[in-house]
C-alpha cells in the first residue's frame, strides 16, 4: 500500500497561507476587539469600541453609500453584460469577440482609471471639446462624485460579468427557445420564461463578481470619488494611516470580511441547490466500489 504523500504536497501551501493570510486576518479580528492607543495603534485591552463606533451616523452613511454604489453598479453591469454575452454566445465568431472584450483589461488598472481622468477631468478631453465647440463657456466638474465612481466601476467589472454569463449562455440549448415559441410563447416570453431561468447560475455569478469587488472598492473612490462617494475601503485606509485608529480600521475590515463571506456562502448554497436538482449523479458517482461501467 502506498504511503500518503498528500501532507507533503500541501505543506508549503498550508504554511504560506497560515503565515500570510490566516494569522494576519486573525490579528485584525483580535484588534477589532481592542482599545485605541493614545498615539495610534492598539492597547491590549478588551473593548467593543471599534464596533460601537460603527453606529456613528457617519459610518452608517458610508456603509449605505458603499452598498448603494456596489448594488447599482452590479445591476447596471449585469444589465449591460446580459445582451452582450448573449450576442457573443450566438455569434459565429465567439473567440474574436471574447478576445475583444478581454484585451482592454490587460492594460494596467490605473491606466484605465487615468484614461477616464484624461477624458472627464477639468482639463480633460470632454471639457476641451465642449469649450472648443462653444457648448459651454467654463470647465464642468465631471469627476470627484459618485457618478464618476459608478461609471468607472462598471467599466472595470463589466468583463467579469460578461465572461460567466457567456459561458452559461453558450451551454444553453437554444432549441428550447424554439420549443417555447412552438408552444405559443412570444419572443419575450420565451426569453424571460425559458432562457433567463436556465442561466440563473451565470447571472448570480455575474452579480457576485461585480458586487463583491465593488463593495470592497478602494482605489476607484479614492482617485475619482468625492465627499459624496466615500466608501468603506477609504474609511479603513484613513483610520489606519491618518487617524491611526487601528481598532476601528480592524472592525470595519471585519464587517467587509463578514459581508463578503456571507455573500459568497449564500451564492454557493444557491448554486449547490441548483447542481443538486440538475445533476444528482455528481453526488453518487465515485462511491465505494467503482464497479459501474
Amino acid at each position: 500500500m502506498r504511503r500518503n504523500a498528500g501532507p507533503l504536497y500541501v505543506a508549503p501551501l498550508a504554511l504560506w497561507l497560515c503565515c500570510f493570510f490566516i494569522v494576519p486576518l486573525g490579528i485584525i479580528a483580535l484588534y477589532s476587539f481592542m482599545s485605541k492607543g493614545v498615539y495610534g495603534g492598539v492597547v491590549h485591552r478588551f473593548s467593543f469600541g471599534g464596533y460601537t463606533a460603527l453606529f456613528n451616523p457617519l459610518f452608517l452613511t458610508v456603509t449605505l453609500t458603499t452598498f448603494l454604489i456596489a448594488a447599482s453598479s452590479s445591476v447596471i453591469t449585469v444589465l449591460l453584460a446580459l445582451p452582450a454575452a448573449y450576442f457573443i454566445a450566438r455569434s459565429a465568431r465567439k473567440n474574436l469577440w471574447l478576445f475583444l472584450v478581454i484585451i482592454p483589461f490587460w492594460t494596467n488598472f490605473l491606466i484605465r482609471i487615468y484614461a477616464w481622468i484624461a477624458i472627464l477631468g477639468n482639463n480633460g478631453f470632454l471639457n476641451s471639446l465642449l469649450l472648443a465647440t462653444g457648448i459651454t463657456s467654463h470647465h464642468l466638474q465631471f469627476l470627484y462624485n459618485k457618478y464618476a465612481v459608478l461609471l468607472v466601476t462598471v467599466y472595470t467589472y463589466l468583463p467579469f460579468a460578461i465572461l460567466p454569463l457567456y459561458s452559461t449562455i453558450e451551454k444553453f440549448d437554444f432549441s428550447l427557445l424554439e420549443a417555447a415559441r412552438d408552444l405559443g410563447a412570444t419572443v419575450s416570453q420565451s426569453i424571460f420564461r425559458v432562457l433567463i431561468p436556465s442561466i440563473r447560475g451565470g447571472i448570480t455569478t455575474a452579480i457576485l463578481f461585480t458586487f463583491i469587488p465593488a463593495f470592497g472598492s478602494y482605489a476607484i473612490p479614492q482617485i475619482l470619488g468625492g465627499s459624496d462617494s466615500l466608501m468603506l475601503g477609504n474609511i479603513i485606509a484613513r483610520e489606519l494611516t491618518v487617524t491611526r485608529n487601528w481598532p476601528l480600521a480592524s472592525s470595519i475590515a471585519m464587517v467587509l470580511t463578514v459581508v463578503t463571506t456571507f455573500g459568497v456562502v449564500l451564492f454557493i448554497r444557491l448554486n449547490r441547490f441548483q447542481t443538486v436538482t440538475t445533476a444528482p449523479e455528481a453526488f453518487t458517482a465515485g462511491g465505494v466500489d467503482g464497479d459501474e461501467q
Partner: peptide
C-alpha cells in the same frame, strides 16, 4: 490525496480570491 484538514485548507486557499483586496493589504500591513 486525502488528509486531515483538507476541507479547511481548501477554504483558506479560496478565501483570498473573494475577500476585498483592501482586507489583505490592511491585514498584511498590521
Amino acid at each position: 490525496y486525502d488528509f486531515r484538514g483538507k476541507r479547511m485548507l481548501q477554504v483558506a486557499g479560496f478565501l483570498p480570491l473573494i475577500l476585498p483586496e483592501i482586507i489583505i493589504g490592511v491585514s498584511l500591513l498590521i
